[in-house]
Amino acid sequence: MEELSVMSAVRAAIAKRERERCNEASGRFGLTLTEQQGLALAQHRSETLKACGRVEFGGSILPKLVRTFCDSPYLMQENYESELWELQDLFYAFKNESGETLTDEELLLAMRSAYNGPAGGAAEYLAGVRLSELCRESRTGTAPEERRDSGEVQEHDK
């Protein structure tokens, strides 16, 4: 059955406004999203939210994500959109894993700490990390293998 959703009518306008806010924050670091990239990220976010079983009634996570990561030394204009794409996916996956125990800000800070630290700017590294590890890395600034080397991580934690 064909459906007409208020979301589709509003989505484009929200995406435009959010892209402008993102660019305001990231522009000074030489990072901007085109209108097409903004819409693509918004479309992808809708699909991710559906896949993760989550709903956003208000604004999306994208502006917060950009504000948190835009000063990362690993982000460049060339990889900006694809990294945001990955980080957005990871954010919702971790959010679900947290069972709503972490606020957006706490989770984003933990992700940034790991991304700028042990991950060395590789979003795919974060994809292989469990939330508990991510939070520990955020606190200690060390990767699991470093803590294993020092005996901090036990065999069952691997």
Binding site: V6, M7, V10, L49, G53, R54, V55, E56, F57, G58, G59, S60, I61, K64, Y92, K95, N96, E100, T103, D104, E105
Partner: peptide, 21 residues
């Protein structure tokens, strides 16, 4: 939709942009 946006934001105390379905 606008009402639910504010209602949900109050529910999460502004600490989360999304909630489980």
């Amino acid at each position: 939709w606008k009402f639910m946006s504010g209602h949900t934001a109050r529910y999460v105390s502004g600490e989360s942009s999304s909630v489980p379905q």
